[in-house]
Design a protein around this nucleic acid. Structure first.
Lengths: 275, 275
DNA sequence: GCGACTTTGTGCATGGGTTCACAAGCAGTT
DNA sequence: AACTGCTTGTGAACCCATGCACAAAGTCGC
């Protein structure tokens, strides 16, 4: 039973790129000693990303009343290979029953705990422009353990306006409001020029998680986790892959489309139990 | 001297490619004359993503009148290591001059060509809700080689409404309009339920690139490149990393923030030549 | 022209992630 | 109880990607 747990023993805490060319000390996050959480020991970054995807699919399955799901089915519905899925899940410990599959509800709870979603993150959003409003109105957050608690903008014309069930406040109140609201995640959807300034404020307010939609790369201290979504980058990557595909597949091959509206998430009624 | 610069360059790897490991497809090297394009030989996926980032930074530099940039500077401004950057660029062939650096304009053109951005992609967007409108109004597209040529929705209340300089058309016209407009990229920002249906239509219309903002995984044929951006996944990953960070760094250390609004992209006027 | 300095481009080692294939384990059946 | 059929969990090989360190190659100054 020796769970060898192959994973490295090296440092590599969270980071993806960690540019730091030496200089600033504290590249060493004091590896050892810290193992208070039996949970999420050492989950690879790529796996974490996929866990979030599995979680969404599990939500859909649960709504449909599915009780048990196999790795094959869940993998297909999530768009990954089944082996990868099983390995991903194995980082959370044993979760399924051999010969049967995974208990949807139990697995869901397991992943939620592992991702830290059980602590009800409170989100503040800065920059209530087009994108900001879209994000504020995006139902996906609430459904997945996040609650939007504050909206901020610097434009006087927008301050005071109601968006959803919140009222836009001036960005000058940001620091104080973050503390009051006990926010844990900050979302930046301001114009590029303001992004760094806002990030600094969020950091000053004590937030440790920032999600930025500005393409500019922001400077934040080491202890703050920053993620960036750049829509144009997405399209450019798409463009490249298109060029390559078009080139290597000059003639469109037999086009076969999965046509069902519920293609893969549809439970095989062979092994899935629905009440 | 380059400051510390510690940004986690963690750019959303979020995206999940199409189900199949279509990436480069053709696992067979098939050297058989398959080298029509001297360009994009065999660029790793991860590199492609970063190339897009470099491109944006180069754009900023060009606007400032910077002529030459070193790998060190460009890397810092992009939030990656300089070695990685050089290796990335080396996939495009020799681009710089040793002892000097890279010619900003030339390098920019080089990357644009490699990414296939020189063919002026035309984008259609389906689903003109909150997010869709935000995307339609997003200036970043136009500035980077994409032009929005069509907006579609199924809601009669929205059809006919002007958004930006376009008018929303009914989604039933999608197939025909795509052909007329010569669209090459389709963006899906509809509710989840409609996403698969829309994807099928886009495929039927002959598009080979689809960018979806629906969290559901869509089924498309192999020859179609699909990318997905799931905002909630971003937040969940953030949440996890936060939990891990908070754990390993219990006491918030001295907060020192890079404060400048243009921290890294600012050219060092030592080695950068500006007219 | 030549040496010193700077910066690119790259071979190589290292490590993380993906995939394969199979043993381990459980349910239902004979 | 033992057998059969399935599915999980994982060891191990492969592949991609990252980072280091250095040779190649150019510029600048004399």
């Amino acid at each position: 039973m020796t769970e060898t747990h192959q994973t490295h023993g090296s440092v590599a805490p969270v980071v993806t790129g960690a540019v730091g060319q030496s200089v600033v000390g504290s590249p060493a996050p004091s590896v050892t000693g810290a193992a208070p959480l039996a949970e999420s020991r050492d989950i690879p970054q790529a796996t974490v990303t996929r866990l979030a995807t599995y979680l969404r699919v599990l939500g859909v399955l649960a709504e449909r009343g599915t009780i048990i799901v196999s790795s094959e089915e869940l993998a297909a519905a999530s768009g990954v290979g089944s082996a990868k899925l099983r390995k991903d899940l194995s980082f959370l410990g044993p979760n399924g029953v051999r010969g049967v599959g995974y208990d949807v509800t139990r697995l869901r709870a397991r992943i939620e705990r592992a991702l830290g979603l059980d602590r009800g993150h409170k989100v503040v959003l800065v920059g209530v422009g087009n994108l900001g409003q879209a994000l504020a109105g995006y139902g996906g957050f609430g459904r997945r353990g996040f609650s939007m608690v504050g909206l901020f903008d610097s434009d006087p014309a927008r301050v005071g306006a109601p968006v959803g069930d919140l009222t836009v406040r001036h960005v000058d109140e940001l620091e104080q409001a973050c503390a009051e609201l006990e926010a844990t995640i900050g979302v930046i959807s301001t114009p590029d020029e303001a992004a760094q300034e806002v990030a600094d404020r969020l950091v000053r307010a004590g937030l440790r998680c920032i999600l930025s939609f500005s393409p500019t790369s922001l400077d934040v201290p080491d202890h703050v986790e920053m993620r960036r979504v750049d829509l144009a980058v997405e399209m450019q990557v798409l463009s490249f892959n298109s060029a390559r595909n078009t080139e290597s597949v000059p003639t469109a091959p037999r086009v076969r489309i999965g046509h069902s509206a519920v293609p893969s998430t549809a439970p095989r009624n062979g092994s899935v139990i629905a009440p």
